[in-house]
Amino acid sequence: MAGQLDPDAALMKRVTQGDQRAFEELVEKYKQPVFNLIYRTLPDAAEAEDLAQACFVQVYKAASRYRVEAKFTTWLFTIARNLCLNEIRRRSRHPADSLDASASPDEDAPAPQHEDARIVGAPDRLMRDELVSKVSEALGELPENQRSAVLMFQEQELSYEEIAEIMGCSLSATKSLIHRAREALKQRLKPYLKTGEWKQNK
């Protein structure tokens, strides 16, 4: 029966039996996606990493509550998102702690990976950097639930159903969130989207 299990579910089954090697495999596999998800909500690399670490610790401790028929990533991202929301709530209660949050979202990020300057000229690169920063800015201005939903769809490539489960809302509410996020982004980025720069720089 175990052979028919989804590989992640099989690993989780081993984790529930106390197999730390299986857990290590899961951490290795999902550390970056979990970090990315948290980082897009709380754009501070050190804090995002601490939360990602807390997320995996929670996964291990709550392993017995995992149902093998559920998709592991949905469960994992639900825990990660709840930790993010708790952190946001904590920061709203103690605003002094969130001074770092006002820092630029990409401050700690490595420099964007640009194409070779011989292929893409300097003016194009500048335009591209500006667009990247405008998109990040527009995303940052979205309400948390819209931003999370649209990024889970775009970056994590999750289905509407999975996003709905992670966010704890209905399928139609999830579709509506993503639709509203896209419309808001299109509205804010209209002048940049019209230029067609993205296509030219592809």
Partner: peptide
């Protein structure tokens, strides 16, 4: 929509853990 999709896909990747 296509331009927005491209824009979102070209976001700076988060740092490596």
């Amino acid at each position: 929509n296509m331009a927005l999709g491209e824009a979102l896909r070209n976001l700076s990747p988060p740092p490596e853990v």
